[in-house]
């Protein structure tokens, strides 16, 4: 292992152990070290956002200069980013600019995200049909039937209102008993997976921060 990798591994493992120990043992120096390390992590994460945005800018500038497919959209992104950034910098000093900043979110960002959410509903409907074509198994059929039953149980129907039996018995049973117990099982599995992933990083065997 190179020296750089060795040092970063040592620092990461030591910091991880201090933070972990700080959760279990309430010794004053451990608690303060824990808080300091988490505070540093938050500051680093804030600087990472600036670096990430620079990366976004570099990637899209490259697309524009190389005239790649979709470079017009990259140009729009760069312009929007620079204008929003400038407005954001000025906003604390000028109330009118601050209103413009809020307006840009309400008038541009929110409607676009809402449209994508609506697109998601269509995408999921198409995907449900595609699922039966691609993977016609018992579990796929159960999955789709359950989704259909839950939708029928939640949506008020014209003239009938809520569907008897489905709305008051079947849907709550599926959602609160079967789905909730299944979800808890899955979440326990995810928690165990997260625990072993964290320990691999503490052992220094997984090093996402550099070094082979």
């Amino acid at each position: 292992m190179k020296l750089r990798g060795l040092i970063s591994t040592l620092v990461a493992v030591l910091c991880g152990l201090v933070v972990l120990a700080g959760y279990f043992v309430e010794l004053p120096f451990l608690v303060s070290a824990n808080q300091a390390l988490i505070g540093w992590a938050v500051i680093l994460a804030a600087f990472a956002v600036l670096l990430g945005i620079s990366n976004l800018l570099i990637v899209h500038t490259g697309k524009v200069t190389r005239k790649q497919k979709g470079s017009f959209y990259s140009l729009l992104l760069i312009l929007a980013l620079l204008v929003t950034f400038a407005i954001g910098l000025l906003a604390p000093y000028a109330p009118q600019v601050s209103d413009l900043f809020d307006f840009s979110f309400r008038a541009v960002q929110l409607p676009i995200e809402a449209s994508l959410m609506a697109l998601l509903a269509v995408t999921l409907t198409v995907a449900s049909v595609r699922l039966l074509r691609r993977r016609l198994t018992l579990f796929s059929v159960i999955f789709l039937l359950t989704a259909l039953l839950i939708l029928l149980g939640m949506a008020p129907l014209p003239f009938i209102g809520s569907m008897p039996l489905v709305s008051d018995t079947l849907r709550p049973t599926i959602a609160q008993v079967l789905a909730a117990s299944g979800a808890r099982g899955i979440l326990i599995g995810v928690a165990l997976g997260a625990l072993t992933t964290g320990l691999r990083i503490l052992f220094g065997t997984d090093r996402p921060y550099g070094g082979k």
Binding site: T123, A127, L131, I186, G189, L192, G193, T197
Partner: peptide, 20 residues
């Protein structure tokens, strides 16, 4: 996300399978 992935991905991973 696991529910939508089950319906839309060619090969979905459920629960702890992603950590494997």
């Amino acid at each position: 996300a696991q529910a939508v992935i089950y319906a839309t991905a060619q090969e979905p991973l459920i629960g702890e399978e992603m950590f494997a």
